[in-house]
């Protein structure tokens, strides 16, 4: 009989056995058990077609998008410890993040990670199109994916305002003025001029979509707070739910696409 190593002793302790209910994943039974029994790994099926594990087919872009989303959640949480979303403090807190805090690349990782997530999500869509993976039965999941793509862009865009620097407010000024030009819903868009009864203007700068976005008529502190809440809580929540739907449907629609 072979000599027992340290690893084998650890595997036989009660603590180990209480956490991992199966042996090392070297045989069929345990390989199935490790994927099915682990809450994180059970996103995957136990077995899948060989074409679906090849990097040349999947490019791993969807998986990377999810991973970067998690990385952004963690770094974003850490950034929140040092950031106050007010016009008075925001800019100084961003400088402090660089100067007064150890590991001064947290903001860099968050920012470049945001860019990287936009890139991976686009390339994921590109791959899914190229392999025709949106075709039945995956039509609905493609739609969920498009919504997630938009939400990724919105997450990135709302994050842009938070440093409260020149780049931030002018990007938001341009963005919110596009909202102003929304037909019928923005006071500077087509249709708004027609929605007028005598002197009473139905769509004005006090009740259009731009006002709702900014919490006021100008890009100012209410806008900063709104974008902060949208960026840190609201959109990530929606994205989280939709990611769950997206992954669930990948499984239910037959896993990673493959020739019929």
């Amino acid at each position: 009989m072979a000599k027992k190593g340290v690893a084998d002793y650890i595997r036989e302790t009660q603590v180990w056995k209480s956490i991992f209910r199966h042996g090392p994943p070297t045989d069929a039974r345990n390989r199935a058990a490790v994927v099915a029994g682990n809450v994180f790994l059970h996103l995957h099926p136990i077995k899948l077609k060989r074409s679906g594990v090849q990097l040349g087919y999947t490019w791993c872009m969807g998986g990377l998008t999810f991973f970067i989303f998690l990385a952004l959640t963690v770094t974003g949480l850490l950034l929140m410890f040092y950031y106050r979303p007010t016009a008075e403090y925001a800019y100084n807190d961003i400088i402090a993040l660089k100067e007064h805090v150890p590991l001064g690349i947290m903001r860099e990782i968050h920012r470049w990670g945001a860019h990287a997530m936009v890139i991976t999500v686009w390339l994921h869509m590109f791959r899914v199109f190229m392999t025709g993976s949106y075709k039945p039965p995956r039509e609905f999941n493609w739609g969920v994916g498009v919504v997630l793509l938009i939400l990724t862009l919105l997450l990135s865009f709302t994050g842009y305002l938070l440093p409260w620097d020149q780049l931030a407010i002018w990007a938001i000024a341009v963005g919110s003025n596009m909202a102003k030009a929304t037909p019928f819903l923005g006071h500077g868009g087509p249709g708004a001029a027609l929605a007028q009864i005598g002197d009473f203007v139905m769509v004005s700068d006090k009740n259009d979509v731009r006002f709702q976005l900014l919490g006021g008529r100008f890009v100012g502190e209410p806008a900063l707070l709104r974008f902060y809440i949208l960026h840190c809580v609201f959109i990530p929540l929606v994205v989280g739910v939709l990611i769950a739907v997206h992954f669930w449907r990948v499984r239910k629609d037959g896993g990673i696409s493959a020739p019929l």
Partner: peptide, 27 residues
């Protein structure tokens, strides 16, 4: 390619490598 393979280790290791690569790249 139609043959079914185990998720562990085939897919899980690919994903691990991608995650490590992405982390190194980002840092």
């Amino acid at each position: 390619n139609r043959e079914k393979v185990w998720t562990w280790p085939n897919l899980v290791y690919t994903e691990l490598m991608c995650m490590i690569g992405a982390t190194v790249f980002l840092v």
